[in-house]
Design a protein around this nucleic acid. Structure first.
Lengths: 195, 195, 195, 195
DNA sequence: AATGAATGAGGTTTCATTCAT
DNA sequence: TATGAATGAAACCTCATTCAT
């Protein structure tokens, strides 16, 4: 009658829990409980804590995985034949970011607009700002971006991108938002202006 | 043993509760409970619910008050003698915003990086983005700002200002942040760039 | 703006409170609060307690009044010309009781099927059982009722009447219930049976 | 300092909670709280809600159990050798009912004269009236009871039994009450009366 | 006699986390 | 490694009653 205890490879079990949590959090950012996750994953409550010390650790693992997925999806450009077109790359990344952000559904709020987000800030080396800063620096070295402070500017522009995605999520026209964001990124970094 | 009952004018009692909550939330954004607030305010638990149906209603009242205070502190410019210098006004507001934001201490996180912030979004007509949009439009009419979309750009720039303040809060050098923000605002709006 | 304090003759004020409570309790037996009553009566909360030491005292006053009304509505028969027809009187009273009971609406549950009913039992001299006992005794003296113990029998028969009314309230056919009750009353008291 | 956690089979834990509640409610029908029950049962508050969604669900479980106990104590008669003596059976059940009722102590009020009793009426198929109706029908088929309406009469007679028990509880002489009840039951059902 | 702000005990319920098995 | 019963700290909210005015 009762399911026998399912012995799994730890890595598999962990993945099942993460996937279960992701499925549920996509549907609703709020009100997903440990109990729901283990039910969805076909595990027992205590098992959860063998893999994640706390609920927030699960969220952190989920966030890490999403960052990894985004990096795979929008990889750093490499100079294969000829130099990189940094402004175009930036536009491409911005569009990819918005798309990715929207595809997250409830996950987005759970991970980025929640008490969790406050209690576990994204480590500086991960996440969008760091990548953006690297791109800005690269573009500056290539002479296509103005000499603004790369770290701080990246951070502010990333916040702007995030906000742009939120605007679309709240119903703003996606094309208009993308254009406005592209304009902002262009203006923020173009060298054709007196400092 | 028992404190005598303090009968106050409702407006006073409400203010005392708000002030008590503000004091506690400044110290720690997290873990302040109704019980703590009434203890701090010298009131009984039931009294709280006479003035605020739920905890989030208290936070909302607090947020409203902060907006009002900021508006008093950084009022809209008026054309007294001669036209307004919109770019300078913008810089002034940005600096005021960062200062104000930092002075909020724990309140900032409790009101703007929390589940509350998600569940009770700032009404569009209140808050920074709306004011910023109005300023951008005014500057555009005066011909000193580029014809970027005012609403979306305001929203993104406000996010950038917010992020700038967070950066200072996390230890970034305040002057550097202010300069980077000013540069961003300038570049985002200056008409000296071809679209 | 504010209603001035309405000074009333104490008896009037008390009556207004009682009537307000009756109105509300008819609508819903449950969940009527002191606050609702004073609002309905146009009085202040504290005023309630000038007239009724506790909520249960209000209910008791209401119950007393209902008893009085029932007694006025179905008065004891008097021997005007010729002897009283006790069995017919009993049937009449039973029908009147059911009618009255149904007309009470929510009051019935509030007064007779509630914690109040348990905490404040009807004083023995008031209420149905006492009157029923008097009628049974009178009928016994007139030789038309069997020599059953009047007090206990009255108590049990009154419970039966009450239950009959509840049955109608719950949807049983009123005529059928009345007939069944009449039969029970008749059989319980008729002398045409060996003891 | 802290008691070690007692892990029980759910059925056992549930039984312990029910027994603890029964013990307390026997002593006093009023003012027993979830907290009292878990203290008496040596469990934590949250444990209560693992087994009973609300306080009333506990009372309902208790009531179910009491019905079951009464049914075990006063089982339906079966025709072993010769026909059942229905009038005698009825007297036996009535006496058993009164005894059982008295043994309940505070439980009786908590379960049958309370807001709970109103909010969770006894399901028609359980409880005394249904059994009584079945007995009356059986006796009618055997020709030993008069052709009164079985369902309604059962309901009224059960109310009378209940009232008889209450009378004893309030101090009436138990023998006198039993005799008066037996007389009522006899008269209500005997065929020796013309309809 | 009247007001209505204040009280605080009470009860409900939820869930992340622990731990005995 | 796995289980799932048990825990208990919160948080929520209600409302009869009190009492300063």
């Amino acid at each position: 009658m009762r399911e026998p205890r399912r012995r799994l490879d730890p890595a598999d079990r962990r993945r099942e829990l993460l996937q279960a949590a992701e499925r549920l959090l996509r549907r609703r950012a709020d009100g997903v409980r440990v109990e729901d996750v283990v039910a969805e994953a076909g595990a027992a409550k205590g098992t959860f804590y063998l893999y994640f010390p706390t609920w927030d650790d699960l969220l952190e693992a989920l966030r890490d995985e999403l960052f990894a997925r985004f990096e795979a999806l929008a990889p750093e450009p490499v100079e294969l034949d000829g130099p990189v077109d940094w402004p175009a790359t930036l536009r491409r990344i911005a569009a990819a970011y918005i798309r990715f952000n929207l595809e997250m559904e409830g996950l987005h709020d759970a991970l980025f607009h929640s008490d969790f987000a406050r209690n576990r800030p994204v480590p500086v080396h991960r996440g969008g700002p760091a990548r953006l800063a690297a791109m800005i620096s690269a573009g500056q070295e290539a002479g296509v971006f103005a000499p603004v402070p790369a770290g701080l500017t990246a951070r502010m522009l990333f916040a702007a991108m995030h906000e742009a995605a939120d605007a679309v999520r709240e119903g703003a026209d996606r094309l208009a938002v993308t254009l406005a964001l592209d304009a902002l990124l262009h203006r923020a970094l173009t060298p054709e202006i007196d400092p």
